[in-house]
Amino acid sequence: MNSDIPDPSDWIDSKLSGLKDVDETLRCHICKEFFTAPMITGCGHTFCSLCIQRYLTNTSQRCPTCMQEQQISQLRKNVTVETLVEHFSAQRATILRVVKEAAKQPIPEVVEPPSSPDLDDGRRRSGRKRTRTNYTETLVSSDDIQVECPVCQAMLPGAAINRHLDNNCNDTGANGGNWLGTKKKTKPLRKIQRVNQASESVANVRRKLQDEGLSTSGSKQTLFRRYDEWVTLWNANVDNKTPRSKSDIKDDLRRWETTVVANENAQPVKMTIKNIDDRQWVQKHKEDYDYLIEQARKSILKKKQEKEKEQQQQQEGHQKAVDRREDNEPDMKRSETEGYQVVS
């Protein structure tokens, strides 16, 4: 099947079909993608920050999974799941390829998914032999060893010492900090407040939009919705481990306006997704469709013929009424011996 759309069914038919459940668990129930900035609800369910905020803002104040009441303010970052997604999705394609290749080989083999070097901390399970390569991989390269600068006594990586000396002990140029780790901190992004349509004036919302550098055109309703969506997109971005730039988020807002808002009153759009969809799917579907119809026709005609035969053989006065229960409860069960009669 089409590998452009990775999803849990990729693991079916592989030697590690159990990974389907792992794959599924690391995906958001709303968008079916791996979690982006996962947030956990008060009831313990996890969704992407953007997905759940959108849902709680626009659709319902209940958890989509268990229907318990839920507010945006109750959401908390699910850091462990975020890390888990990061590691799993980084390895996913490799594991999938390895297990699919293993499936082709006649002799079953134990497949060890390659572990990433940063997980390899030397505390390996006993019984697994280290090879030479593993040793060299885990050795610290001399370039990573901290050395003292003979001139200014600063500690810096061996790899950087020559450049440091060439720059007369002045390293503030390249990455905005010196080697002692006092890197210039980026200002943490702050979440913004939602506005209440009942109490906030249009003028205020227009000013807020202007302050953010967003469009201020449209009806009152449009302005409120635009700002609301901006808050959702922005706050979800703040939850991201590596937040995107403000102009990226503005692009997202524009996209939202062109797909969701613009199409609410218009004709359904035709979006072409040639690279992702697969003509075979549609073709297969059409064939199934025709086949099923043909089968059903045949079976009904056959039943009808059988019925007619049966009727000829049967004595007069045979009851064809549908069973009714004594207690008047409606019941559409047919009697044991006959099917529903086809009305001619």
């Binding site: 035709k270 979006m271 072409t272 003509r279 799917w281 549609v282 297969k284 579907h285 199934d288 099923l292």
Partner: peptide, 9 residues
């Protein structure tokens, strides 16, 4: 049986 009516939509 179910699926998109046409591949563009």
């Amino acid at each position: 049986s179910a699926g998109p009516a046409d591949e563009d939509n």
